Lab assay of single mutants.
Amino acid sequence: DEVRLHVNGHTIEFRGIDEEIFKILEEAAKRGADEEELRRLAEKLLR
């Protein structure tokens, strides 16, 4: 299960996240989070 999030012209792939987590990451990206911040956030949410 892989999703792709487009951030500042880059595509970031995440594996094993559900739609709810994806929406949180998408919102963070809209607020200016970079790839590293998004990955840290995803790790926290998946715990």
Rank of each mutant, 00 (worst) to 15 (best):
D1K: 12
D1N: 11
D1F: 15
E2N: 11
E2I: 15
V3G: 08
V3L: 15
V3W: 15
V3H: 15
V3Y: 15
R4T: 09
R4C: 04
R4M: 08
R4P: 04
L5N: 02
L5S: 01
L5Y: 00
H6E: 13
H6W: 02
H6V: 15
H6F: 03
H6G: 03
H6D: 08
V7Y: 04
V7H: 03
V7E: 01
V7I: 10
V7M: 05
V7P: 02
N8P: 03
N8V: 02
N8M: 04
N8A: 05
N8L: 03
G9Y: 00
G9I: 04
G9F: 03
G9H: 02
G9Q: 02
G9N: 04
G9M: 03
G9P: 02
G9K: 02
G9R: 00
H10S: 09
H10G: 06
H10Y: 04
H10M: 13
H10T: 11
T11Y: 15
T11C: 07
T11E: 10
T11N: 06
T11A: 06
T11D: 11
I12P: 01
I12L: 06
I12V: 07
I12Y: 04
E13M: 12
E13P: 01
E13V: 15
E13Q: 05
E13S: 10
E13R: 10
F14N: 01
F14V: 04
F14A: 02
F14G: 01
F14K: 01
R15M: 11
R15C: 04
R15V: 14
G16M: 02
G16V: 03
G16Q: 05
G16T: 02
I17T: 05
I17L: 08
I17W: 03
I17R: 02
I17G: 03
I17A: 04
D18Q: 06
D18Y: 03
D18G: 13
D18W: 05
D18M: 04
D18L: 04
E19D: 11
E19L: 11
E19V: 11
E20F: 14
E20S: 12
E20V: 14
E20H: 14
E20A: 13
E20Y: 15
I21L: 10
I21T: 12
F22G: 05
F22D: 01
F22L: 07
K23F: 08
K23E: 06
K23M: 08
K23H: 07
K23Q: 07
I24K: 08
I24H: 08
I24C: 05
I24M: 08
I24N: 03
I24P: 00
L25F: 02
L25S: 00
L25C: 01
L25D: 00
L25G: 00
E26L: 14
E26N: 10
E26T: 11
E26I: 13
E26C: 10
E26V: 14
E26S: 12
E27R: 11
E27K: 10
A28N: 06
A28Q: 08
A28D: 00
A29F: 12
A29I: 10
A29L: 12
A29C: 05
K30S: 09
K30C: 07
K30L: 08
R31V: 07
R31Y: 13
R31I: 07
R31L: 13
R31C: 08
R31K: 09
R31E: 10
R31N: 11
G32V: 03
G32W: 03
G32R: 00
G32M: 04
G32N: 03
G32P: 00
G32E: 01
G32T: 02
G32I: 03
A33F: 12
A33D: 05
A33R: 04
D34W: 06
D34M: 11
D34F: 08
D34E: 11
E35W: 10
E35F: 13
E35V: 14
E35G: 07
E35Q: 07
E35R: 04
E35T: 06
E36R: 13
E36I: 12
E36Q: 13
E36G: 13
E36A: 13
E37M: 13
E37R: 07
E37D: 09
E37L: 09
E37S: 12
L38V: 09
L38Y: 01
L38R: 00
R39Y: 15
R39V: 07
R39D: 01
R39F: 13
R39H: 06
R40K: 11
R40Y: 12
R40E: 09
L41M: 12
L41N: 00
L41Y: 07
L41E: 01
L41H: 01
L41T: 05
A42W: 10
A42I: 07
A42K: 02
E43V: 14
E43G: 11
E43L: 15
E43D: 08
E43A: 15
E43P: 00
E43R: 15
E43Y: 14
K44P: 00
K44W: 15
K44L: 13
L45P: 01
L45K: 02
L45C: 09
L45D: 00
L46P: 02
L46M: 13
L46T: 10
L46D: 02
R47W: 13
R47C: 07
R47M: 12
R47D: 08
